[in-house]
Design a protein around this nucleic acid. Structure first.
Length: 423
RNA sequence: GUGGAUGUAGCUCAGUGGUUAGAGCACCAGGUUGUGGCCCUGGGGGUCGGGGGUUCAAAUCCCCUCAUUCACCCCA
């Protein structure tokens, strides 16, 4: 195996890439309707930026693609989008401008992990971020945008899970409650959970082990430990969602991995994925901008995995794409017509027709066969005899019908053949 | 980082110790000297993932390695 892509990466082309373009197009259009503007930020940042947040998450701990550049700087391929967008918000002093600002991004992320279904080392996310809005409508709007995207792509059987992690005022107390609760059952917990007690107690709620799960029922619930402000915020988010007709479910064991989240957290999950069943994850992160050296700025957003989204589309059979329709294939049959073929192809291209032409000096039969294989709707046949009298043949491939066209009248003639339903 | 499954032609796979490793599809050419799809005939194409070992003999058995894939951890 000589030519071999790096582990966990993918080559995307022909029929697949059209599906990507479709999804991206729908997302961009939706963002226009919701008035989110695109932001394009670097695909690598100073390693320091990622280290300043999320010290306890695995993604920072052991999954970063970090390298030294030739100037000795430590740089890291972005493992997610939010931190970079927040950095840009601060660096460009957007907090001094018109607020709120609403961004979306679309692009590759990098994490050093063992690949599995729905997980690669380079993967792609569509995400949105809102800065400068603390009210619950902002939370709800991002969720509605995601739900609309799925709806517009024709996806079904998705569930929106909601939870609130509280704020710096009420979360520590809840964290203690969880810790205290599990302390009594420490000997029953799985090994991973015993580590979680020290590293990230809230993660205890999310364990998949049977015995740990059985403890969950009586565990303290985040939503019952919220301070009055957080509680009212969360209630209002839910009311907005319900009012907009979006189904969602409060899931007390939902705990997001990145530790800059505050208050609202949410996920969209699908049973049409493998073990990695989250297609979209987001929430509010009111502390992030300040943690990165900016002024206190509330923010909320989500990231959505495009590979996972495409995977659901595939299993739900929503993969119909137009492909790449080729209007005309130019076939040359003689000495002088072979010289004319590329010129006619150019003429048709400039008239707006997707047009291709043989490069390989193949036989007429081979050219015809090729035209059929690539799905050309029509073939323009150039013969020396017809060219001498200023004519060409146009063949409608589906019906086999052929017409004679005057060279001077080429474009309208092709248009007529393409427009005819039955040829 | 841990565990399981799988690597044979471009693709899907057969071949589990014994001649020059096969099939279907795809590709190319001819049958049809200027006409695709269907049919017929022929052709090109293989370091059997890589390396080492056992054996008279290895695609086949053993070890290592790389890759793919699924799961854990964690996450989109």
């Amino acid at each position: 195996m000589q030519a071999q892509k790096p582990r966990g990466t993918a080559d995307i082309f022909s029929p697949e890439v059209e599906r990507w373009q479709h999804v991206e197009g729908v997302a961009r259009n939706l963002c226009r309707e919701y008035n989110y503007g695109e932001i394009r930020i670097p695909e690598f940042e100073h390693t320091e930026l990622f280290l300043r947040i999320g010290e306890v998450t695995d993604i920072v701990q052991k999954e970063m693609y970090t390298f030294l550049d030739r100037g000795g700087r430590s740089l890291t391929l972005r493992p997610e989008g939010t931190v970079g967008v927040a950095r840009s918000f601060i660096e460009n002093k957007l907090y001094g401008g018109v607020l709120p600002v609403k961004f979306y991004y679309l692009g590759p992320m990098f994490r050093y992990e063992r690949p599995q279904a729905g997980r690669g080392r380079q993967f792609h996310q569509f995400g949105v971020e809102v800065f400068g809005a603390s009210g619950p409508w902002a939370d709800a709007e991002t969720i509605l945008l995601a739900v609309d995207l799925f709806k517009r792509l024709g996806l079904t059987d998705l569930a929106v899970l909601l939870n609130s992690l509280g704020c710096p005022d009420c979360r520590p107390a809840y964290r203690q409650q969880v810790l205290a609760y599990y302390q009594d059952y420490r000997h029953q917990l799985c090994r991973a959970c015993r580590e979680r007690m020290d590293r990230n107690p809230l993660r205890l709620l999310d364990c998949k082990e049977e015995t740990c799960r059985s403890l969950l029922a009586d565990a303290p619930r985040a939503t019952e430990a919220l301070c009055p402000e957080c509680d009212s915020h969360f209630e209002t988010v839910q009311a907005f969602l319900a009012g907009a007709g979006a189904n969602s479910r409060v899931e007390p064991r939902l705990v997001r991995g990145l530790d800059y989240y505050t208050r609202t957290v949410y996920e969209v999950v699908s049973k049409d994925l493998g073990a990695q069943n989250t297609v979209c994850g987001g929430g509010r992160y009111d502390g992030l901008v300040e943690a990165l050296g900016g002024p206190p700025t509330p923010a909320v957003g989500f990231a959505l995995g495009l590979e996972r989204l495409l995977s659901i589309l595939k299993t739900q059979g929503r993969t119909a794409t137009a492909g790449r329709p080729l209007d005309v294939f130019v076939v040359a049959t003689g000495e002088s017509s072979r010289k004319q073929a590329p010129r006619l192809a150019q003429r048709l291209r400039h008239a707006g027709y997707a047009t291709d032409v043989d490069f390989l000096d193949r036989s007429v039969k081979a050219q015809m066969k090729h035209a059929g294989r690539v799905g050309a709707r029509t073939v323009l046949m150039l013969g020396d005899a017809e060219l001498a009298t200023g004519q060409v043949l146009v063949r409608h491939m589906a019906s086999g019908r052929q017409d004679v066209l005057e060279l001077g009248d080429l474009e309208p003639g092709v248009a007529a053949v393409l427009g005819r339903k039955d040829g």
